[in-house]
């Protein structure tokens, strides 16, 4: 499923992203976001290229990347389902919704279904706390989750 990319291909595409961010003050986060948007994760080879271009050590770039929850070292599933675990959603039964989703998908937090369809991730607040419990599916927001609504979301992404 995942297309193997040659080091050269990664190099060209990462180079273009770094070029586009070259004039920014503090370019590293925009570059990492750009790389992740391009490949779906941040490939190891990209770290060295970014480090060289920004005059940083590879360890520094790796340290930054691993500090933030957003950046992945491995590709995610075809869909990413983020469920809010924070307090307002808890007060509306978010924990039960999460348990239901885990059971239906057969994965725990950060897990990907064996068919590569869905990665389940926790998120701490989506700013939808007055229509809780809330979720995000591939960047799209969903609120007022109940058993039916979470089942419908899972149905859409699990295939």
């Amino acid at each position: 499923m995942a297309v193997e990319l040659s080091a050269r291909e990664i190099g060209d595409r990462v180079g273009a992203i770094v070029d586009a961010c070259a004039s920014l003050e503090g370019p590293l986060l925009p570059i990492l976001h750009g790389v992740q948007a391009e490949f779906g994760f941040v490939p190891q080879t990209a770290l060295r290229l970014i480090a060289d271009r920004l005059n940083l050590s590879r360890a520094e770039v790796h340290g930054v990347m691993t500090f933030y929850h957003d950046f992945r070292e491995e590709p995610a599933g075809r869909h990413v389902l983020k469920l809010c675990r924070a307090e307002a959603c808890q007060s509306m039964g978010g924990d039960e919704i999460a348990e239901r989703a885990k059971a239906q998908l057969g994965v725990d937090w950060h897990g990907t279904t064996p068919n590569g369809a869905v990665t389940l991730e926790p998120v701490f607040c989506l700013g939808l706390c007055s229509c809780a419990p809330a979720a995000m599916v591939d960047g799209r927001v969903v609120g007022r989750l109940n058993d039916d609504r979470i089942d419908a979301v899972i149905e859409q992404v699990r295939a």
């Binding site: 920014l24 003050e25 503090g26 370019p27 590293l28 986060l29 925009p30 990492l32 976001h33 920004l54 340290g63 930054v64 500090f67 933030y68 929850h69 957003d70 950046f71 998120v123 701490f124």
Partner: peptide, 28 residues
């Protein structure tokens, strides 16, 4: 002005951590 995206760290709401993050560092 510019819009910059965070990267999913709650502590980056703390102002000095935010500034480190904006500079491209770990959000310490």
């Amino acid at each position: 002005m510019e819009i910059r995206s965070g990267a999913g760290a709650y502590v980056c709401g703390e102002e000095t951590s935010l500034l480190n993050s904006l500079e491209g560092k770990r959000g310490v």
